[in-house]
Design a protein around this nucleic acid. Structure first.
Lengths: 211, 211, 211, 211
DNA sequence: AGATAAGCGAGACGGTACGTCCCGTCTTCTG
DNA sequence: CAGAAGACGGGACGTACCGTCTCGCTTATCT
């Protein structure tokens, strides 16, 4: 026996159903134009035109440029870059960072930069970036680090987020400021530099900084 | 003794001289509005109005919003944050990073974020940020690191820029994405984590930091 | 004896029959809104909403705003203002004109003005006004005048329509241009002015009106 | 010696002066399009495009379509149709009415009809029509009638406006409703009909209508 | 009883014009 | 010649209706 709330979900609202074709066309155009002209030069008018859709249809479903861009961005980016769990923690993170770097230097890199950039004056955009992109990955990574800390693989006296911000911060820094190239070597150097500090060192007292 | 009007090479062009009052008013308004409404909502029209100046005067001296904002930004930010050289390298860097964090959490932090953000779609803006802000500091910091490497204080097999990008990348990451707070503790943790890796390790024993 | 379903030619098409309730609601809303906001501000969207009806239903039965408005107008106005035939011609016309003036100054006056106004850019609207409103009354009035001419009450050398256009034109002029008030006195003056000219003058002496 | 208020009138406001070329182009386009498509289909967008002018320029000087149309209308119509004063009153009026009829059947007739029509839902449009078109002519005509009444040419016991509304109302009625043609003959008939009533009849008691 | 047909609400769709805002340029007069 | 004032052509904004459409549901007649 089925309860109404259970089985026949989607009571099918009255009225003409939303055109999924239009939805897709809009998101595609948005994403394409975003990479072409950047966030600032991106116009709702242009998106609608390129999608072969009326402006009203765009505004019916997305209240403004920011959330539309976020939507388009997430759709393109969502399936990317999960961690592998079969290998040792540090190796797994390093592998994921290398894949991230490869993504950053490709067209998606420009888009991510554009989103963070636009987010500086569009709070909800940054929020969406954090919620839907960063948080998802961070959740996995944090878990990985925590487990490694519990297993004695990583020293437990540093908050996982600090560790991750150092690792990924370096990548985002170069992505956004572009003062130096992003490459696999960069990731290698980062790990060469940080692993002595991440590895739990049972034989010595924890390092102390000069005061 | 020379009179100013005589010798020191200012042919003094004919016509009414540029109004320095207008220049200052424009830069002040730009900076104020930038922090108030962000880069995107910032309008040349608004700047001119608030400065009590005609739009033409703004355009006479700055070709577009980006370079005007950069100018205003640099004027406000130029005198900030040099390194001290009297102390050990790591300590000097850490002290400067702490001061940078304090600046990041203040109003100038919003401005820097806005400039990097806007730079994502305004190449010359990012360029100016790199040239006039980042490069200046990086030059000093790189020198510091290089000297420390030469002195055996820091392992020499990691490029100085990689080291600096890890340190500062973490700060800029939090400044721009705002997923976690910026504070002195964060800097502490960063250094606790990274110093074992930065210290040159001639033996297999974990490094001990000089006191 | 015939049953309604049998003989009098209404083959009763299949399918759901038209909702008379919807029809009435639409016409009522149209008429109400027409007087409220005028023809130009009148929107099909608004009519449908106020009638609690879908736009498609409106368009199913009326191809455009003009014929809908005409329909609503005629429904409200049809039963009005016929002539009385028991009295002398001039008196009958004057009485009807007085009643017309009373209608013009009431809410129906605004509607008639709106219809003629809208008719200036909607030919079929003006056409409908002529056919269904003016012609009906004009037919009666013309007959009245013609009989009076035949009876020697009115001079026969002026076309009846000219006479009627002078009489009624004055009223419509004030209705539409609103440069002077409409009142019973105005009708009085019109008749005081025109009757000497309408009365057949067999002699050269200025006409004397019958007492 | 000249006082400032006297001689150098127009102190020449600062700023770029209004472009008279744009002004003329806008008014011309408005008038042309008004006659082409009517008031309802007339769009500010279309006017601006045809005039080679930006929409903002149109809105800078005319707050809405109605007053723009009135302006265009008056510019085209202003120089028309004054009275001649050298002849007897009735003859002068009749001559002017004949000229008015000729104008009514030409393109300006459509425009006037459109203006009165649009005025039914745009009060300020009707107001402007009354002020700038009707009142100007009515002033002359009323003076003419009043003088004629004083001179005993026209009976003095009918308000001049009533007389004029009968005469002109007939013309406007046919212009607006188009149920019968406008022609010189129509004016003739009107005068044949009304003159016996307008002429002061000293020999008889004032006409009384049958009650 | 079931099939077929139309009416109806809801509401999404591609369009067009609205009136506003800001862009970057221009034209004029004043200091 | 700089500067203020402000008009100019241009273009995107976000909104409101247009008239059309696609749904699911209801109400009828016809098999």
């Amino acid at each position: 026996m089925k309860t109404p709330s259970q089985a026949d979900m989607e009571p099918r609202k009255p009225g003409r159903p939303r055109s999924d074709e239009a939805r897709r066309a809009i998101l595609d155009s948005t994403f394409a134009l975003l990479n072409e002209v950047g966030f600032n030069e991106l116009s709702m008018e242009g998106i609608a035109a390129q999608a072969g859709v009326s402006k009203a249809t765009v505004y019916r479903w997305w209240p403004n440029k920011a959330v539309l861009v976020i939507d388009a961005f997430l759709r393109a980016v969502e399936p990317e870059l999960h961690f592998t769990h079969s290998e040792p923690t540090l190796q797994s993170i390093r592998a994921q960072m290398t894949r991230l770097v490869n993504m950053f230097v490709g067209p998606l890199g420009r888009t991510i930069a554009a989103v963070i950039g636009a987010g500086q004056s569009e709070p909800e955009m940054l929020e969406a970036f954090r919620e839907h992109w960063l948080a998802v990955r961070r959740l996995e990574a944090r878990e990985l680090v925590r487990n490694a800390q519990a297993a004695g693989e990583i020293r437990p006296d540093i908050p996982p987020d600090t560790i991750l911000d150092m690792l990924y911060g370096a990548l985002y820094f170069r992505l956004l400021v572009r003062h130096a190239p992003l490459s696999g070597d960069f990731v290698e150097d980062i790990f060469r530099l940080i692993t002595p500090g991440m590895i739990y060192q049972s034989t010595s007292r924890p390092a102390r900084l000069p005061e």
